[in-house]
Deep mutational scan, measured.
Amino acid sequence: KYSDMIVAAIQAEKNRAGSSRQSIQKYIKSHYKVGENADSQIKLSIKRLVTTGVLKQTKGVGASGSFRLA
């Protein structure tokens, strides 16, 4: 599940300011076997996790910027 992968990526990075979408994508692609549409799936999952309150956006708008666990 992409949401689990995103949470794992943010936990692994341990950046106080949060993790960027690009760094999350890079982590997921190197640690998991994902399909061609992974980028758009990650983007959608990040937006969903922010609206449900699992992630907090520290910089930027939408799916860009930095995110950390709430």
Results as ranks from 00 to 15, higher is better:
residue 1 K to F: 09
residue 3 S to K: 10
residue 3 S to D: 15
residue 3 S to Y: 12
residue 4 D to T: 08
residue 4 D to Y: 11
residue 6 I to T: 00
residue 6 I to L: 03
residue 6 I to G: 00
residue 6 I to V: 09
residue 6 I to W: 02
residue 7 V to P: 01
residue 7 V to W: 03
residue 7 V to H: 03
residue 8 A to G: 03
residue 8 A to Q: 07
residue 9 A to D: 01
residue 9 A to L: 10
residue 9 A to F: 07
residue 9 A to H: 02
residue 10 I to R: 00
residue 10 I to T: 02
residue 10 I to E: 00
residue 10 I to D: 01
residue 11 Q to H: 11
residue 11 Q to F: 08
residue 12 A to M: 05
residue 12 A to C: 10
residue 12 A to Q: 06
residue 13 E to C: 11
residue 13 E to K: 07
residue 13 E to P: 03
residue 14 K to W: 06
residue 14 K to D: 11
residue 15 N to H: 08
residue 15 N to Y: 06
residue 15 N to W: 05
residue 15 N to C: 12
residue 16 R to E: 13
residue 16 R to M: 11
residue 16 R to I: 12
residue 17 A to F: 14
residue 17 A to K: 11
residue 17 A to R: 11
residue 18 G to R: 01
residue 19 S to D: 02
residue 19 S to Q: 03
residue 20 S to T: 15
residue 20 S to G: 04
residue 20 S to K: 03
residue 20 S to M: 03
residue 21 R to F: 15
residue 22 Q to W: 09
residue 22 Q to Y: 10
residue 23 S to R: 05
residue 23 S to T: 07
residue 24 I to K: 01
residue 25 Q to N: 08
residue 25 Q to W: 09
residue 25 Q to M: 15
residue 27 Y to I: 00
residue 28 I to F: 03
residue 29 K to C: 05
residue 29 K to E: 06
residue 30 S to Q: 11
residue 32 Y to H: 03
residue 32 Y to W: 07
residue 32 Y to K: 00
residue 32 Y to V: 01
residue 34 V to F: 03
residue 35 G to R: 04
residue 37 N to G: 07
residue 37 N to M: 05
residue 41 Q to R: 11
residue 41 Q to W: 12
residue 42 I to N: 01
residue 44 L to A: 12
residue 45 S to R: 04
residue 46 I to L: 13
residue 46 I to T: 00
residue 47 K to F: 10
residue 47 K to Q: 13
residue 47 K to V: 10
residue 47 K to L: 11
residue 48 R to Q: 11
residue 49 L to N: 01
residue 49 L to M: 12
residue 50 V to K: 01
residue 50 V to W: 03
residue 51 T to F: 13
residue 51 T to K: 15
residue 52 T to K: 12
residue 52 T to G: 06
residue 53 G to C: 05
residue 53 G to E: 02
residue 54 V to K: 05
residue 54 V to G: 01
residue 56 K to E: 12
residue 57 Q to A: 11
residue 58 T to Y: 10
residue 58 T to D: 08
residue 59 K to E: 07
residue 59 K to R: 10
residue 62 G to I: 05
residue 62 G to R: 06
residue 63 A to N: 12
residue 63 A to R: 10
residue 64 S to C: 14
residue 64 S to Y: 09
residue 65 G to E: 14
residue 65 G to L: 14
residue 65 G to Y: 15
residue 65 G to S: 14
residue 66 S to F: 13
residue 66 S to R: 15
residue 66 S to K: 14
residue 67 F to A: 02
residue 67 F to V: 04
residue 68 R to I: 14
residue 68 R to A: 12
residue 69 L to P: 03
